[in-house]
Design a protein around this nucleic acid. Sequence first.
DNA 1: TTGTACGCGTTATCAA
DNA 2: TTGATAACGCGTACAA
Lengths: 349, 349
Amino acid sequence: MAEQPRGSVTLMDVAARAGVSLATASRALNGSTRKVGDDLRERVLAAARSLNYAPNAQAQAMARGRTNVVGLVVHDIADPYFSSIAAGVMEAAEGHQVLVTLGSTLRSPGREVDYLVALRGQRSRAVILAGSRMDDSTVADALRREIDIFENDGGIVVAISQKQLPVDTVVIENRLGARDLAASLVDLGYRRFGVLAGPDAMLTARDRVHGFREGLGRAGIDLDPAFVVHGAFTRDGGHQAMGSLLGAVSAGDLDCVFAVNDVMAVGAMVACRENGLTVPQDLGLAGFDDISTLRDINPALTTVRLPLEKVGATAFELVVSAAERTKARTRRIKGEVVLRQSTRPAVTP
Amino acid sequence: MAEQPRGSVTLMDVAARAGVSLATASRALNGSTRKVGDDLRERVLAAARSLNYAPNAQAQAMARGRTNVVGLVVHDIADPYFSSIAAGVMEAAEGHQVLVTLGSTLRSPGREVDYLVALRGQRSRAVILAGSRMDDSTVADALRREIDIFENDGGIVVAISQKQLPVDTVVIENRLGARDLAASLVDLGYRRFGVLAGPDAMLTARDRVHGFREGLGRAGIDLDPAFVVHGAFTRDGGHQAMGSLLGAVSAGDLDCVFAVNDVMAVGAMVACRENGLTVPQDLGLAGFDDISTLRDINPALTTVRLPLEKVGATAFELVVSAAERTKARTRRIKGEVVLRQSTRPAVTP
DNA sequence: TTGTACGCGTTATCAA
DNA sequence: TTGATAACGCGTACAA
């Protein structure tokens, strides 16, 4: 049996036990394949196994000058939007000998910069910035600056959301999706719209509002600014915004409400219920994202489906293929309108 | 302005720019507070700032012999159960100068061992194993063995779920919660129960079934084994299991169904609807966990509330307080029955 | 208080 | 093919 040495087993221990030099042990365990005699290789592998040797990744990183760490920075890991993206990243990373470290900014944009610094300290090979960019030039400038430094150190940066930064980006077609949704809702016969708009500075929210307004405009419908209520990008934000909206309008002013994401839509649905309104009979309601956990709410939510796991996987692919890139690349992910019971069926003539 | 040097800035660069020795620079930036003259300290800090210096965490780790990396291993990060726990861990880690690395086993128990090896290679300070233990002695033995090695290297291991491993554990009182739930359901007047039981080998699922059966037994009610249907611990698993159950029993055999977690309950609710059953009029339905994302489904789910973020935070506290422990500690987290609309109101005499 | 020099565990370069 | 040895960047005795 193998004895259990106290403290970490080093390559030197392995080499000693196998009766070979450090260099040989290193080559047998990690270096290029065909350079160590089979007998010695066997001895080294056996020694490593019996000693439970695990290479010190820190030391390897120092010697090699690079790591296998990829940082993933999200706004809030408890939000299903981000946990789905994270799952996509993790799955894509499978088999790539990569360790994913998770950062959660708790929805405070400035913290992205902090994580970037920390991950630079870790000499992370790459960082994936998942989550909406903000309309805040101070933060954006600081971020851009830190990204420069990070990339100058040889790191890779990939963003998910808007093409605001000069890095490889998985662009989510929020605007297009919202435009299509608007068109579909008009097709269903809706005419008087309200919007629960999320935070004004959040580009994802803003793009969706813009796209929606655009879609309505093409159908000759105006979106009254008074019917656009901002609120947090959360369930409670949606709940509150819907409450305000309902308080501000009179019955008949509204026949359909678009919440810029599904969790807000769910909050809005509750607010409707509390106000005695039935969806979709009294009011149509639509969301955005098609969060899988929310697919079974009743009435089922009309929304724009986003392949979130694919978004994460795509970001990871940008990371692994970054070596051969010549300039910042863009991958566009489209959403697809899904009509369900929270909006009424199309009026058949 | 600061020039942007090509490649990483090292402490030597900072020392040179500040005109001090390496040791002084090190002390000014990291070492104990009161050992560097104010003037020199200022010079060093200024130099570091102007050069965008970020300490090489790998090198620090090597020199110090320890890291600030904590590994979090979950079954599936897309599952709200785990993403809530992860959020709790992240929030608790806030301000502790710790980087959390995320592992997702994709529900394959053997992968926990792989992550443990990888994290040992990283010289992680600690690993949090979140997720049910399995009734699989092969895996458990391998895990125990690898945990020994990990701890022997000075690492800390914390488990969340059952006290199956000889490590600090956040024990979730599944059994107790399910027992209480059973009692509450009996109080509501239910008598003929079915259970959607999850995978047989998963201890969390099994504990909940046992506890539920226990609770019924105390009320003098027998749980017919034919009414216990196993299935995956997911929405689809619940959907399928409920389908089987409804196919196997005749109307009147059943007046309430307990799904061992909320996502299964949601799947079950859909299956009910598909079979023309209305919850709770035709059938009561209860879950477990009180997943926040699912709180707004309709009818609202009767369930056992688990403070998942607190679970994660508690696990992290065990990590940071591990130094002063003498033997494996246990923190028990209780659930609380929450009665909602998916079960009928109590019959008033 | 400040500086010198060694060690952390590994890879990679050079000889042998 | 194998082995000795110099990096890698930092912390920290030890000496000054």
